[in-house]
Design a protein around this nucleic acid. Structure first.
Lengths: 220, 220, 220, 220
DNA sequence: GATGAATGAGAATTCATTCAT
DNA sequence: CATGAATGAATTCTCATTCAT
């Protein structure tokens, strides 16, 4: 990955935007967009305030970049998986949902969802971009998986539009929760943390009992 | 509600905090806490900026009051219902969830959830208060309803902690969505609005097929 | 002028914009628009920085106001004079030019010309406003006076457009000079100051010898 | 002008300051000193920002150089002419004034006058240098020409100090005007452009009628 | 109580200047 | 010599908070 024959300066220059966006992401998630000062972002990235402006035109541009940077590595994997496991929609759906949780929901990237929710009203263009580049894409992916299952007679023929939301929202909400309410560890009691150890077992049990034409428990 | 024998001045005086909090609530929801200026709050409430400080010590105090004011009328109803319909947990759960949607999720009060999610990190004490005064209370209510159903052998004996979240999150997320992403109507395409007309039908179908020991469709 | 029954606060509020504009004018003239900091303007007016923004939306708005404030009292007098002395165009022209010198060129208001010259490129709308509200008006006034003289057979029938500039530019340039080069008293030698004691005598001698059909010197 | 036996590198090196100053001049004139960024100057000269500092210590030093560079080629011509046409002061004066207009007033160099007027207060030493190196020299030249005319009995014996200003200011003002107000072409109406086609005819007519002991028109 | 003018600390942004490469 | 990434002081503008009226 590292090209050792480039002078250090230049290597730095190429890495900078990602470093800055990473610093900004973590701060935006911690404190929200408005409450994050560019001073802090610069400090966390180990550069001066002015340097930010070498790479981003404004705070809003930085916001936009954070979304883009954070989401580029995110979708190759997800969509690639769609072509595998076509004959086992249950396992495919489960894997895709767990993938999302592992690579997004449970990580810092999950904070982007919270960010977008918080700032959509104030930055409609950024929200629109995110909606189109991420939400629609992801929802469409989920829809295709479910649709496949329906067509194969494995999933019940309910409204796919709604199903994909019902299936996804418990995970999304969990992630959002983790990055906001559960984040004020000191003040909020432990009870604020909603993740019980059996959460995922129960989640998939419920989801698939609702989805499957012949749930294992009953078909037995 | 109105006490007609008090002189108007005094009535006004007592109503003021609620009026101010109402104005603040709608603005906080529209623009977020940080982006709302006290000028605007005062203007919307029809008073001068200085007057705000007669009733609230600071912007944060106003935030706290917004939570309290907005949620006081909210929980008498909900908890009262618990004592009714004890013998029909399915109907009770459905009614309670629809009640929440009707009186909170679908109304401006649903915006408080978004607000808390956005600002929890910056105002941990407010978040803690909300957590304890609202979230815990509401989750406990849901838990009791489900527990009743389990005890009566109507609901499956899964982890109740998780079930109440799985049941509630699709509604909560929907409400949060409505108050953020779906709110930037101009920029975000209509597709951002996730409510399909059959959402609630499918929602309850899925939920109860997952919950009920003997779902109608399968018991047949 | 002062209305002694208004509370001091209110009297102040009405006077403020003019006070602020006056402070800004003198600083803009001294240092130019770009080099003047709003801190200084506020300090000179004896208020805080924030107060400026109660009355003016931006530094540019302040600039615009300076032009307007400074020029309002300026044109009533000038144009009123046009109706007098219709039968003596030479005296009328001389009085109007001296009036301009006394009330504008020689005073701080003359600095506005320098300001506009300096900043026209950077603030085209302000320059356009000044052009229309001041320059055109003043030039038109001069043109009418000269035209009257021509029609009465007192002035030679040359191009009036040009004449009014030839007549005015020596005064305008003198004023601009005073407010720029002559202003750096310490560094610039006294020779930079171009006003010789006989300037106006020679000026009018030249102007009228050029203008008059029958100059006194020769008609004698 | 080009010295073809120097290696190109070296030629470049010697030409650099002049190239940089030329780039700076045009930008200073376009936008004023303060509003010109060194980035732009470097870009227009086709070098990097750092290179500027190899040749000039500071932005102010560049300003000073702009004056010097721009005016060096300017005065050989002018003063050389003084020795010719000694027996026709009218024609000499006319030629010198037209020369100034052709080589300075009408060209980019005329912008230096505007620049000095704008920045004299902020850069007194630069203004002082310009005053001494340019203004005094030029005024002295004009004075000598007029003095010659007076001594030959061709020009009237008025105050020469003032006469040279009266003669020069209409041209100077015209040039300044062209480089400021007339420059904001978009916003300012065409009427802002003060040059009528007969400007110079009328100008010389007026000037010489005022100057000459026996103007053609009257001597008839 | 109520007002709204005034404040000033704080945040985003710009840009002349430096210096490692 | 030349570069251009990095700096940070300086500047505009915002807004929660105060307080004289």
């Amino acid at each position: 990955m590292i090209e050792p024959d480039l002078p250090r300066r230049q290597r730095r220059k190429e890495a900078r935007p990602a470093e800055l966006a990473a610093a900004a992401l973590s701060l935006f998630i911690e404190k929200g967009f408005a409450a994050t000062r560019l001073d802090e972002v610069a400090a966390r990235a180990g550069v001066s305030k002015g340097t930010l402006y070498l790479y981003f035109d404004s705070k809003e541009a930085l916001f936009r970049a954070v979304i883009e940077e954070g989401l580029v590595p995110l979708f190759e994997q997800m969509e690639a998986k769609l072509d595998t496991l076509k004959d086992d929609p249950e396992r495919l759906l489960k894997e895709i949902l767990l993938d999302w949780w592992t690579h997004v929901g449970a990580t810092e990237l999950g904070g982007i969802s919270k960010l977008i929710i918080s700032e959509a009203r104030n930055f409609p263009e950024v929200a629109a971009y995110h909606n189109e580049a991420v939400i629609q894409r992801w929802m469409s992916l989920l829809g295709k998986v479910i649709q496949t299952g329906v067509e194969q007679g494995v999933f019940r023929a309910l409204d796919v539009e709604t199903l994909r939301q019902l299936v996804f929202f418990p995970l999304l909400m969990l992630s959002v929760w983790k990055h906001s309410i559960a984040g004020c560890a000191a003040a909020c009691s432990a009870a604020a943390n909603p993740i019980s150890p059996t959460y995922f077992d129960t989640y998939f049990d419920m989801i698939f009992r609702g989805l499957l034409v012949a749930p294992p428990e009953l078909s037995a």
